[in-house]
Structures are given as structure tokens and as C-alpha cells.
């Protein structure tokens, strides 16, 4: 079995000084997924990056709805950046060096 490092939501909230309900709201909005094992809630390692990014936004007074909107916009922004790189490379065909 693959061992995975899990962090309890409780421990995580204390460390980051955020409320449990914040993680719950993020989970309800479908922005992060948690794992329930023997009556305790855990954050899988794979969700940490996303979650810690959201916490830094939360610390800037951005609420869950705002974080949700930003997450979608950032996804689209990344797609657009990828497209832009592709376009930039294609444009080189027409550029004289």
C-alpha cells in the first residue's frame, strides 16, 4: 500500500490560525477534498498546495465565494498563458531575425 502523509484538519487549522469552518466551506464549494478516517478529518498531501494558496488569499480578507471565483479565473488565466506561448512561438515563423 502506498503510504501517504496525512495532516489532521485540526492540526492544520491551529498551525495556520484558521477556523475549521473555513475548510468546511471550501470543501462544500468543491474547492478542496478532505479524507475521513477513523472519525477524524484529514487533508491529503495532494490538496495541501491548493489549500495553502487559498489560506493566503483568505488572510487578505477574501471570502470563500471570492476564492472560488479567483480559482476559476486563475485556471482560465493559465490556459490563456499556455495559448499565448503557443501563439508567440507560431508568430516567430513570420519574424525576420
Amino acid at each position: 500500500m502506498k503510504t501517504e502523509h496525512l495532516i489532521t484538519v485540526r492540526e492544520f487549522c491551529v498551525y495556520h490560525n484558521v477556523d475549521n469552518t473555513f475548510i468546511n466551506s471550501l470543501q462544500q464549494a468543491g474547492l478542496v477534498s478532505v479524507m475521513i478516517k477513523s472519525n477524524d478529518t484529514f487533508i491529503p498531501e495532494t490538496e495541501l498546495q491548493k489549500l495553502e494558496k487559498m489560506i493566503s488569499l483568505h488572510q487578505l480578507d477574501i471570502n470563500v465565494a471570492g476564492i472560488e471565483a479567483i480559482t476559476h479565473l486563475l485556471d482560465r488565466m493559465e490556459q490563456m498563458q499556455q495559448k499565448l506561448i503557443g501563439m508567440h512561438n507560431r508568430l516567430r515563423i513570420y519574424e525576420e531575425e
Binding site: 495532516i7 492544520f12 498551525y15 495556520h16 490560525n17 495541501l48 498546495q49 495553502e52 489560506i55 493566503s56
Partner: peptide
């Protein structure tokens, strides 16, 4: 201060 480092 501004940013707290995370677990990751």
C-alpha cells in the same frame, strides 16, 4: 509578519 510558511 506578512506570510506564514505552510506545511508544504
Amino acid at each position: 509578519g506578512g506570510r506564514r510558511t505552510g506545511y508544504r
